[in-house]
Design a binder for these strands. Sequence first.
DNA 1: AATATTGGAGAGTAGTACTATCCAATCGAG
DNA 2: CTCGATTGGATAGTACTACTCTCCAATATT
Lengths: 208, 208
Amino acid sequence: MRISELSRRSGVPVATIKYYLRENLLPRGEAVSATQSDYTGDHLARLRLVRALVEVAEVPLSRIHAVLAAVDDPGRELHTLLGAAQYAVTPQFETPADDPVWQRAEHRTDELLAELDWRVDAASPARGGLVRAVATLDRLGSCPAPEMLHGYAQAAHRAAEWDVSRIDPDAGRADTVQAVVVTSALMGQVLTALRLLAQEDESARRFG
Amino acid sequence: MRISELSRRSGVPVATIKYYLRENLLPRGEAVSATQSDYTGDHLARLRLVRALVEVAEVPLSRIHAVLAAVDDPGRELHTLLGAAQYAVTPQFETPADDPVWQRAEHRTDELLAELDWRVDAASPARGGLVRAVATLDRLGSCPAPEMLHGYAQAAHRAAEWDVSRIDPDAGRADTVQAVVVTSALMGQVLTALRLLAQEDESARRFG
DNA sequence: AATATTGGAGAGTAGTACTATCCAATCGAG
DNA sequence: CTCGATTGGATAGTACTACTCTCCAATATT
């Protein structure tokens, strides 16, 4: 298909598609002539993936690069892909060196992970994000109780079981890889939205 | 305290504090003279709240305005505050009019909410976010199974119970209000991070 | 032959969140 | 009391992201 059809079928303006081509977020179509390239269904699927990550998961383009590199790397093992997808969609930040609040949060986090017996990388961006959130809550005087963190961890574990059970290692690689990325990013939005709705319901039952 | 001390104690540059004063994200200190104002502990707490929402919860300043308006409204009832906090921290977007995928997602969402017997506002931004995420998953060919959505909903409900149980209606109003906002925004980050860590653990156990 | 589309490149734009500079008033150490 | 530092207030400038627009020559379509 030509670029105008790709635009029509995806709903993405031609100018934006050209921008993605320049930024290597979308591979070039096969050149048919000096003024025409042929785009395939794969291009359409890739474009939809990029738009889903940009619009819905709100992943910055710079990190979508990393996601796509992982998706396109044929040598990547399945169990490292999830880590790469997570790494790419998780915001990065620098950790303060000598902050007593931070160190306390780090200690509480590691204690929690040890009690749960979760095998996670100490350098995982998700661990950093958890430490930061706990430290921030602490600083605001709303430090969550250990039981609350455990309750949350159980809820998170339940969701994660569904996520991982969804991965079919025997399916075609390209499909699996995209499913992992999509699950990681978009099911997170689903969980967030469901939590807010559950809050609304629970609050109405108790106080409404 | 003076502005320099407020800056030192919060870690926020003086120029940024001045910017927040201009943008009405922070109330002005009491004027002592033409070149000096007095800032209190309340200013420090407010500043920390704004920074937590900006840095950790990644709420845009425009929406922090709405959060603070809800926090500062003395006539606001408790059970409407959570809604306002949610509304403020949830990204807005326009819904497509005639999109069969969207309508299917909307139908599936309402069915789920009906089965769960959750009493939620049909105009809730969280409901819109859920519909959008489901529609996007569908469009990418990874539409979640109803059982998976139910599993996620149970996980979300478990987290929400902790959130709501944390609200003490008898505590001082200002504290309660801030706790609600903080819980809504920052515990969401905690849940997200815990889900990613649980994925890492679960994936290691199954495939690692 | 006339009109439209394409690939490609470059510059321009809109929005967000600061950050820097300037100024006159005033504060504070010596 | 003097003189450098600080403050409130205003204005302008910056860095970054994600597009969006314009232009061109080479095709493609009618």
